[in-house]
Amino acid sequence: MTRSRGGAVARRVAGHLIRGLVMVWVVATISFVIIREIPGNPVQGQYESLIQKGMSPEQAERATAVLYGFLPTGSLWDQYTGYLGSLLHFDLGRSLSTPGVEVTTLIGHAARWTVLPVLAGTLLSFLLGVTMGVYAAIKRSGKLGDLLALSGSLLHGVPVYVIGLLLTAIFTTLWPILPSGGPVDVEFVPGLNPGYVGSLLQHAVLPVVTYTLASYGGWILAMKSNVVAVLGDDFILAAELRGLKRGIVFRYLARNAILPLFTILALSIGMLFGGSIFIEEIFNYPGLGLLLVNSISSRDYALMGGTFLVITVGIIVANIAADLLYTAIDPRVRSGGSA
């Protein structure tokens, strides 16, 4: 590898990181402005109610600052820098609806219920969509191909809550074979025992299937059009003429068609993170999305701001990671697009 090429990669990585940091700063600013602009000014309200309860102004000020991450008094600029400062220490304030608990703790507990199903759904839909996409491309003039493409278009076009609601209606109401909500049945002791794990998996089926179906459409459509494009390439014809086995031709085909899909990976993960809000509400799954909705309805604004930040930053990080991954695996991008 030449020196200039290494420099180009480093510049690219640095560019992504800087853009990511700017995005995080923009989102943090939005979050600050919204918390400040909430009707009735909850920060000021908290401060005043604490003073009425007999606290000294300094105490009340400190208690409110602990809750929201910035001082209730002082200029707008002081509040803003205070908020950003506590964010730098990963301090998101304290929750009101679960009194005294730090927002970061609540988010940490909720994150696993979102991240694991989203990753499982992404993986499943990727495998399913890519395989079916190859079939849809090869059989594109037949009935099967038509049907596969139609299933892709439909699932791609329909909002995630429609998929979730229909699945629940079918599998918990009309044909009740799966539990309708919650992460796990309460009668089991948490731990590595078969009852608990079994119940956990049973409750995860519908959310994971919803995540899978929600992004399956995008994969199959993209994979189909990529395979169709690669099918026309000379090297596939050459491989066939050389009499290579079908398995090897298939590998040529898949390898070349799959590469552009990594650009959609970030979009897909981001979409599922956003969709988690609906999926968790429908299945009563205690993840980040449900935390966000509940914090809004219980007017727990510190929690709301924190959850919003974490979800958004998660999506931004996923975007950057996918971009970098793409740079790492695609030789054309890696060499600066000159090839």
Binding site: I30, S31, I34, G270, F273, G274, G275, I277, L292, V293, I296, M304, G305, F308, I311, T312, I315
Partner: peptide, 8 residues
């Protein structure tokens, strides 16, 4: 992402 922002 639009939806979380809309919610907030």
């Amino acid at each position: 992402p639009g939806l979380p922002l809309l919610l907030v």
